[in-house]
Write a protein that binds this DNA or RNA. Structure first.
Lengths: 220, 220
DNA sequence: TCGCTTGTATTTGGATCCATAATTTAGTGC
DNA sequence: GCACTAAATTATGGATCCAAATACAAGCGA
């Protein structure tokens, strides 16, 4: 049987993927409401798969759903984002330790490629996407799905504030990030979980502390 | 307007609450499939709110949804549950620290009442429910919703294995748990976050280690 | 007997229509 | 002009019907 379409995803998941991308890329901002009918018409489906897509996004931590009042991208304050970073500091090392032994040669090649591209100089949007792919790729072999999902949710919830932060601090910060990524990559390559964990925690901690010095990001 | 019904919840949330209870109480076991039509007929609704309810349970970490294949309660292996406990060890202290300062007199009375009831001797099911309420109540004032939700998901995902464990170890273990709860309560009462965190981590760690000595729980 | 294929039954996914709740707008009284 | 009320609009929630995919079972062949 030469069926080419490799398992067409359900419409609800396709729509969820589109909306997810629009939220992560900033086309939809915190506080903004998501209207079922508007999305349905725009993507050429009925409202029903959109409703399911919204529930999927809810599970992703990308929208808040309130009964009879619809879905909107949540607006977080500085304290909440700080706690999300503290959660990252505690969960991501666990995910990394679990995933590290299973990293393949192809993974390392991709990680290197990402890093080369960032260092070659990219705009904020590209940096955010590559940085996300970099870290999530290092966790991708963690055998506990709940842990991977929890980490992904944390990245989702903080995406808008990471962008706002990068737009303020700009290229200056990328230098530090690049150095930290390189240290982390080397530790991973020599299977040194101690060092890898140390660099990762430091990386997240530093970001949290710098972020907390920019409360203007959270004034809406 | 003397409307008594204090904001009737949507049917999908009502159904989700019922199914959540059935999963947590063990009426629906890991591996078991959830049929939309069966639930709809049983609860007297159409399949549509059941579909939404299943998505809500997915966000709660109580079911796995696969496109065109429906929802089933996930079956975890011993390694995954161990990692879930390690996640608890890292996240719950954070939630506790954030919540502790806001605990009220009423909360302490309720915590004490729960503890008295457990110590008076209860069956496994009642113990599980009271123990869950005890811990989640100590986190209830954590201002970061994502953290509260993450912790709740961890309790949800491990509920079946906690029950299986308690059914094996029985009343013997409750003694230790009671002692640990008392120590934790006292630390909370005197606002000693250092001690509270220490007791909580020890409590979860001990449970994880004992659990990992009963691999027979996970043979299905 | 075992494996494969094909047909049937079951179950999930999506569209349309209707009901209900929330929001906005227009109107009225002060 | 402002506050409150009521009606109209808008958006979400639910029921029913139909389509598509999966799972199951019987029959066929080796």
């Amino acid at each position: 049987m030469s069926e080419l379409s490799v398992q067409e995803p359900a419409a609800s998941e396709r729509i969820a993927a589109i909306l997810r991308d629009e939220i992560l890329s900033g086309k939809i901002s915190p506080g903004q409401r998501i209207l079922q009918e508007e999305v349905a018409e725009r993507l050429g489906s009925s409202r029903l798969p959109v409703r399911e897509a919204i529930r999927i996004l809810d599970a992703d931590g990308l929208v808040d759903v309130e009964a009879n009042k619809g879905a909107r991208v949540p607006h977080l304050d500085i304290n909440q984002v700080e706690v999300l970073y503290r959660m990252r500091e505690r969960l991501e090392p666990l995910a990394l330790i679990e995933s590290m032994p299973a990293l393949t040669e192809a993974d390392f090649e991709r990680l290197d490629e990402i890093q080369v591209r960032i260092e070659a100089g990219v705009d904020v949007q590209a940096f955010l996407e590559l940085d996300r792919e970099f870290h999530l790729l290092t966790y991708s072999h963690c055998p506990t799905e709940q842990l991977r999902d929890s980490v992904t949710r944390l990245w989702n919830s903080t995406s808008h504030y990471r962008r706002a932060f990068m737009e303020i601090t700009g290229a200056r910060r990328m230098w530090i990030v690049n150095a930290e990524h390189r240290l982390l990559l080397e530790a991973l390559a020599r299977q040194d979980s101690q060092d890898a964990e140390r660099y990762l925690v430091g990386h997240i901690q530093r970001t949290r502390k710098e972020l907390s010095q920019h409360p203007e990001i959270f004034t809406h």
